[in-house]
Amino acid sequence: MQENDPYAELLRLCARGDEKAFERLYQLTSPKLFSVCLKLMKTRHAAEDVLQDGFIKIWNNAASFNPERASAMTWMATVVRNRGLDVLRSRKSRPQEVETEYEGLDFASSDLSPGEMAGISLSASRVQECMKALQEKQRKSILMAYYYGYTHEEIAARLAAPLGTVKAWVRRGVERLRKCLE
């Protein structure tokens, strides 16, 4: 819903079968989306697979992108992240080998420099502001789930908190977020 959505026009061209526009879109957006995949999937191999499947889906479904409902970047992140979650949640267990370590959540919580602010959408800064308004444990739990794909159990282990408490942090955090983002 950005007024100047830099990628919406490229997506529109993709829907018409313009492969040059698709290549440009990939060049511009894949570094962010690959980073999302790396955090979520934990291994480079799985992250590459998810990025690849996600972009093929973006190409095939470009016609279903509706610029009135979300920005192009949000739509693409949805496609890629959904693919990643499908893979993660269909696994019986997490892979033992983890190549991408937990890197904390500073990137999502720290104040952005004016240069960085210019590079992100209004929707992104709005959700970031609402995240900051949450209690620390609520925020941490939600960000761990969102960026690292952690389940309630994994968050409980990392934060050394009882499972029921973590579930309540997530539930209440989500409720506060909903009100803040209304």
Partner: peptide, 8 residues
Amino acid sequence: LNPMAELV
């Protein structure tokens, strides 16, 4: 939630 992907 998915605009948060921009922050990485």
